[in-house]
Design a protein around this nucleic acid. Structure first.
Length: 456
RNA sequence: GACCCUAUCGUCCAGAGGUCUAGGACACUCCCCUUUCACGGGAGUAACACGGGUUCGAAUCCCGUUAGGGUCACCA
């Protein structure tokens, strides 16, 4: 009746959301949004005994974080809770037993299933050549009569219900896709070999199968299979490490898809506009965290100072830094904003702005303060800065350079010790701007402290 | 083992028979900017897996080989 595109993401609640799964969800979502269709989330928890609410929550949380809102499924993309929305529910397979029973009877009436000696229900798999069109892989022709097990036995019939009455993936997956009016099944390439069997199921049921699109898997950088233990494998790890969700999402979009021009960072609206399942690459993509980090830095650079400040606050609090209001915080963050690749690095760059009790980095001390004459330079610089009636970066710079010229040494002889004296380390923002933000009182006091600590 | 998918710089992506002495990005190296670190700007190293065809012409089409991946469950 309607030609509306309906796609779905159907994870099983394993307790976390894998990036591979996230990308599958993303591509489904992109297509739904591109086509003005619906994105459905269905939880494949056929094993009710293993159903854990927190495991489902981890998946919903990851999807929401990435911005992948669903139109039907547990809860909605926008609100919390697991109640569900949509007219084809429930969206937990553990609650759909009656539906499966009904479809099983249809198969039974048509003579497609039988009970094996152990009491499991099996589907009589037609062993004949068949073919289908895949949106990503193209036309696929297989002869299932030829596939055998590792020991050389012919493949056995597909089990669809266990002796204990619980259901097997293949059957319920097909039934639910049919019941939920799914028009396009976009899933991982690991399902490619399952698809002929699923199509047989559709045919036995007398239902027209949906369009299929199998997307390549994501591998580790070195080409090995990405497992749950690998770095960056869980969406939650990006949440915990303070990545920008837009950046991670953007990166995932680029894994197997591209706008066909040289753009890398592009708004999701633009991806939605250009996305086509048939344009997805056929080759497995290797996951490169470096590039993801670079994209994240691009997103940070594009943030306003205010956005950057708001994003930094939770991490400053977590680090126990008392910054005393955004008015005091923002000028400091302005100094280091473009040096940051990941928001959680912020506390490590600004801590000394908010406490006088910072430590001196041993290596920095060795390389600058311990150098002959360094403390003498500090005394001279302190003298010059103490006399200033104004306190502004360009003035501080000209004063320092004048002093160096008068004494007949390089400005560096003042710059390096000064940096260590006021911050305890040898790397940081532009010295003069840092001094400006710190203020005259604190700068002089910190030089005094340094002189006292390292004299003699 | 059988069946299926895939094959362009280390990695991601352009390239859909001539415009390719193969382009962009990440990473790496060097230079500039900056007397710190980073950003930014510039330059450089680096690839069509191999072998056969088809064609006037192939990274692009076909076949084979090799390599990688997937599936062959009462996991999803």
């Amino acid at each position: 009746m309607s030609s509306e595109v309906r796609v779905r993401f159907a994870p099983s609640p394993t307790g976390y959301l894998h990036v591979g799964g996230a990308r599958t969800a993303l591509f489904n979502w992109l297509y739904a949004r591109h086509a003005g269709g619906k994105f459905i989330l269905r939880i494949e928890d056929t094993d009710r005994a293993r159903h854990v609410d927190s495991a489902v929550a981890a998946i919903l949380e990851g999807l929401r974080w990435l911005g992948l809102d669903w139109d039907e499924g547990p809860g909605s993309g926008k609100e919390a809770g697991l109640d569900g929305c949509g007219e084809y529910g429930p969206y937990f397979q553990s609650e759909r037993g009656a539906v499966y029973e009904r479809y099983l009877n249809r198969l039974r009436d048509a003579g497609h299933v039988y009970e094996d000696p152990a009491g499991a229900v099996r589907f009589r798999l037609p062993r004949k050549p068949m073919e289908f069109d895949d949106l990503v892989c193209g036309h696929i022709a297989v002869d299932r009569s030829k596939t055998t097990t590792p020991t050389g036995e012919p493949e056995s019939d597909m089990t669809i219900r266990r002796p204990d009455g619980s259901w097997i993936f293949h059957f319920v997956n097909v039934v639910d896709d049919a019941e939920m009016r799914i028009t396009h099944v976009i899933r991982g390439e690991d399902h490619l070999s399952n698809t002929p069997k699923h199509i047989e199921l559709y045919q036995a049921l007398g239902i027209a199968p949906p369009q299929f699109a199998h997307i390549p898997l994501i591998l580790n950088r070195d080409g090995s299979k990405m497992s749950k233990r690998d770095q960056g494998a869980h969406v939650s790890s990006y949440m915990e490490q303070g990545y920008q969700p837009e950046a991670v999402c953007n990166y995932l979009c680029l894994l197997g898809w591209s706008p066909k021009d040289d753009r890398e960072k592009l708004p999701i609206e633009e991806v939605i506009r250009l996305f086509e399942p048939s344009k997805i690459n056929r080759k497995a993509a290797h996951f490169d965290l470096e590039k993801c980090n670079w994209l994240n830095a691009q997103y940070l650079a594009a943030m306003s100072l205010d956005e950057f400040t708001q994003a930094s606050i939770p991490w400053l609090k977590k680090a126990g830094i008392v910054y005393g209001g955004t008015a005091a915080l923002s000028p400091v963050l302005a100094l280091i904003k473009e040096k940051i690749k990941l928001i959680p690095e912020v506390p490590g760059w600004v801590d000394y702005f908010f406490t006088d009790a910072f430590d001196y980095n041993a290596e920095a001390v060795e390389k600058t303060l311990r150098k002959p004459g360094a403390l003498e330079r500090l005394v001279q610089l302190r003298g010059a800065y103490a006399e200033l009636n104004a306190w502004e970066a360009s003035l501080l710079e000209s004063q320092l350079k004048e002093l160096a010229a008068k004494v007949g040494c390089k400005p560096a002889e003042y710059i390096h010790p000064a940096r260590v004296a006021v911050s305890g380390r040898s790397v940081g923002p532009s010295l003069y701007h840092m001094l400006e933000v710190l203020g005259q009182q604190r700068v002089l006091a910190r030089i005094d402290r340094t002189l006292a600590e390292f004299a003699g």
